[in-house]
Design a protein around this nucleic acid. Structure first.
Lengths: 159, 159
DNA sequence: GTTTAAAATTTCAAGCTTGAAATAAATTCT
DNA sequence: AGAATTTATTTCAAGCTTGAAATTTTAAAC
């Protein structure tokens, strides 16, 4: 028997904490799997994949600061990742005419080819990893996750 | 209108990919929030909190290798975190009688006190961050996440 | 009892991540 | 125009993370 809580509020607090631990276990596990596959099968990393995915969606290029905002990581972080992608010939920086401060990050042709291959694998991996859920369950789950997201976004942004 | 997919399998693959992106957004967002609060309000980090939580659950101490397995991180990783906790007087290493290779990591009295305070805040933070969900919704969500977990654990462990 | 293999840790290099400080260029104010 | 502010980006130090290599100790095999 579960010990009865002192109040309903305490009970739902425990329920939410339990939910958080499960969510964390699920996403950490999937993420670890994706990282391993990217590394072992494709000699790359999740941060590099994320940057390439962002650039693939913006063929005209993204300013470093926009890239950073889009991915919700620090400026210094994208600097390093784009540097390393550039070393491998997968991305490059393009000067912005009229603003000597800014650079557009873009995928090279080689980068586009590489990303297209990765993206297909990525979708398959995720599909397999979440294969325990039916389409209906996936949709229910997505709906609840989106509801939870609304709340965090609301409390995130105390404007 | 959504473009109709070539097959039901493709549709559910897209549904699962969408689910993954939402899950990632939710957990990354909450995690970032927790990291920020631990940092700004308590001058610590999530990895340190995780190690302290593991040690708090095992008052008799945990071997470094068990700690590493429990948290699913590398051996070298816990070495560094326990080093830094020890520098701050929150944890220490105890020799294992009869095995000169092994060490038990344990919280100090100071570490226990510090963790107890953190744990209370942590539960409240999570409760707030997931506050958009009713108790019923939390339970439904937990159930579905657990179902998804079973699958990943199954495919994770190709024994 | 040696040799061999296994187990427990640490060390290390490389990459990721952050926030803060430093540069440099554009914009705004007076 | 000249000064002050804002914007775009890089650099840096510190910590996290991993897998691989190195150490040390224990256990197993012969």
């Amino acid at each position: 028997m579960t010990p009865d809580p002192a109040s309903p509020a305490e009970a739902s607090s425990k329920t939410r904490l339990r939910l958080w631990l499960r969510l964390l276990k699920l996403t950490s596990g999937i993420e670890a799997d994706l990282r391993r596959k990217l590394r072992d099968d494709h000699d790359t990393t999740l941060p590099r994949f994320d940057v390439m995915a962002a650039l693939a969606r913006h063929p005209q290029g993204l300013k470093m600061s926009d890239l950073s905002r889009y991915l919700k990581v620090s400026n210094g972080n994208v600097t390093g990742i784009v540097d390393r992608l550039a070393e491998d010939g997968l991305a490059l920086r393009v000067a912005v005419p009229g603003d000597k401060r800014a650079n557009l990050a873009r995928l090279t042709a080689k980068g586009i080819t590489a990303f297209d291959a990765l993206a297909g694998h990525h979708e398959n991996w995720v599909n397999d990893l979440l294969g325990g859920l039916t389409a209906d369950e996936s949709q229910t789950l997505t709906g609840l996750v989106e509801k939870a997201l609304n709340q965090t976004e609301a409390s995130d942004d105390p404007s």
